[in-house]
Amino acid sequence: MSAPNYEPIIGRYVTIEVAGRSYRVYVEEAGQGQPVICFHTAGADSRQWRHIMNDAEMTTNYRFIAPDMPWHGKSLPPEGFEEEEYLLTTEVYVETVLKLVEALGLENPIYAGCSMGGRIALQLALNNPEPFKGFIAIEASDFQPAWYDIDWFHRPDAHGGEMGAALVSANIAPQGPKAERWNTQWMFMQSGPGVFRGDLNFYTKDDSLVGKLGGIDTSGKPLHIMVGTYDMTCTPEDAKRTADQIPGATLAVMEGIGHFPMSENPATFRPHFIEALAKMG
């Protein structure tokens, strides 16, 4: 009998306390060396990072850690969720990231996050930079009001996941491999009821960074912003507007990519991400 041809990714669970509540969080990791904690977009989970985590070359020098945020993927919602309206807030998100870094014993990790994970990169860089070596903010901007009705995605008479997937397909570039474009949408289709809406509540309403980005100090903590040309939610103009407000921030515009770079088109994203990691020093 031959040994199983396992991927190098391993998954484990850790329990953290955020805002006085206990959360069982699923965390995947792969690789060795400099830790990089990777956060997924709204309405999805850590599977968005699987191509990076299965990359034999990058995992030689980097240890990638990708949690499923509470309520997402294999992480459970908190006790009492059944009577609760899930609405993500900046405060809970920031505390979740900081508690995970602490619980996992990560020393000087690079933070990488996409979409709402990119927004939190900016929040952390401004208000809580201490634990981190640097920040990679993907499809990230200071503020994005909704160009859709977020209540579409949590209704008793329709499947929020299927509608959410069909909407976010507007943010996926046609150049990606068909299988990966659909895998990207599958995560939205699987998302728990109301979770995408609750994430968007944070992403489309929190304008707390507006006018404050100039306070980010990139001198010792690099901040690199990445954006795909097909992203209609955080457009290249949105990302440039954001980068222009942060002294020392760098910006990469990725051709032929949308809002989910690491998931929808791994081969095109790869060199951009290698470049981003190199910028972290």
């Binding site: 579409w152 509608m163 507007a170 097909y230």
Partner: peptide, 27 residues
Amino acid sequence: FHDIFGFVKTGRGRIEGDILLLVKNLR
């Protein structure tokens, strides 16, 4: 131009009427 919502986002077009019905049948 890769998605019908692009028309709306860029002001090149409009989507009107029962948009929720469109969203329910969006795919």
